[in-house]
Amino acid sequence: MAGIVTQLQQVAVAVATGHLDAATRGPLRFRAVGSSDLSVFPLALSGNVFGWTADDAETNSILDAYAEQGGNFVDTADSYAGGRSETMIGNWMRKRRNRSSMVVATKVGKSADHPGLRARVLTRAVHASLNRLGTDRIDLLYLHIDDVNVEFEETLLAVDELIRAGKVRYFGCSDHTGNRLIEARVASAQLGVAPMVALQNRYNLLQRSEYEGDLAHVAAQQGLGVMPRFALASGFLTGKYRQRSDVALNQRRGEVAKLMTRRGMRILTALDRVAREQSTTVASVALAWLLAKPGVVAPVASVTSAEQLADLSDAVTLQLTRHQMADLDRASQ
């Protein structure tokens, strides 16, 4: 752990003093989330493993290493480990007394206790999340599902009430189509309530079609901050899965195995090539590719140990060349 912290501190000093290679590294800049006043580290730390594959000690170690790196953007959900993820993040913030320096994003709609997005259910879910997080406000609330059984007006009015009460600062959506984003924006304008400022959808080098196209166009039109989730495709884009035997111990081995196609291997080959040119890791290149895409604010990535953060830390200052971006674009078509 000490070695990782030292490495991250050295990176931070190098960035601050301008001693990183100017051809491939840029200054570390926090990014605004859409039209909000939230300013976030360009890599969001997912809490989806907290309380699942990471226990309390490992979770604290991961969060400590992320904060040492300068990270301030933690992403979780009320359905992660049955709410345990929120509790562990809340305990860590209380022990470190750093709530004011963190931007906390959570999602509601999928938990077993509060499923769906009806007004009363959503309100209860947010109150439960606030209790688990040990805080008086959620900085960024995501609608974790597109609940087509509930009129947008009902959900939007409930969220607006929470915003007016100071319990939620801003909100966004997850798993919504471009058409549904348009419906939500129209409904928000008609009701005179707060509009969405963020979008979280599956987006990475292997899985581009869900986001690129209509959804990306609408997100740009509405000025939404985009936070790609599954940014490393369940670990496949770290480069550690090269053959079937490598997948055996992965918790999402079924999903990862499906990615081991000719196209998947072609993408890894391109990532290997760029990583060598940039003297960095495959994972950092995959994240840097996302960060170079229009509208992307902060990819959401998870790690199972503090040591793995070192493999991702380069992405936030890594600047890919036009040729490298084009190479990765072609390989992932």
Rank of each mutant, 00 (worst) to 15 (best):
V126D: 09
D147H: 07
T321E: 08
L268D: 06
W52C: 01
V150F: 10
L205T: 09
L318N: 04
M265K: 12
L45I: 09
V5M: 07
V150C: 11
I62K: 00
V74S: 06
E307M: 05
S332Q: 08
D147T: 10
V159Q: 07
K293P: 06
L143S: 12
H217E: 14
V197C: 14
L156Q: 14
S305I: 10
G239F: 02
K107R: 14
W52E: 07
Y241K: 11
D136F: 03
T238E: 01
V159K: 08
V193T: 14
A298V: 13
V226L: 01
A220S: 15
S245H: 05
F152E: 09
D146Q: 12
H144R: 11
R118L: 05
A194P: 03
N131M: 11
T17C: 03
A248F: 03
A57L: 03
S302L: 00
H176I: 01
R276N: 12
T53F: 00
L232H: 05
S111M: 09
L206C: 09
R25E: 05
A301G: 10
A315T: 08
T53P: 00
G3M: 11
G83A: 07
E151R: 14
V148Q: 14
T317W: 13
S35E: 11
T53R: 12
G235K: 09
A67V: 03
R25W: 04
E212N: 08
N48M: 10
A14K: 08
G134F: 02
R120F: 08
A257N: 08
S85K: 01
A189L: 13
T155S: 13
A77M: 07
S85G: 02
V74P: 03
M102Q: 14
A67Q: 12
E68S: 04
L181V: 11
T269C: 05
T53V: 12
L290R: 04
L191Q: 10
L28F: 11
A22E: 12
E86Y: 03
Y142F: 15
G134L: 04
R330Y: 04
L130N: 10
G223R: 11
I182E: 14
D139V: 02
M102R: 12
M227L: 15
S245W: 01
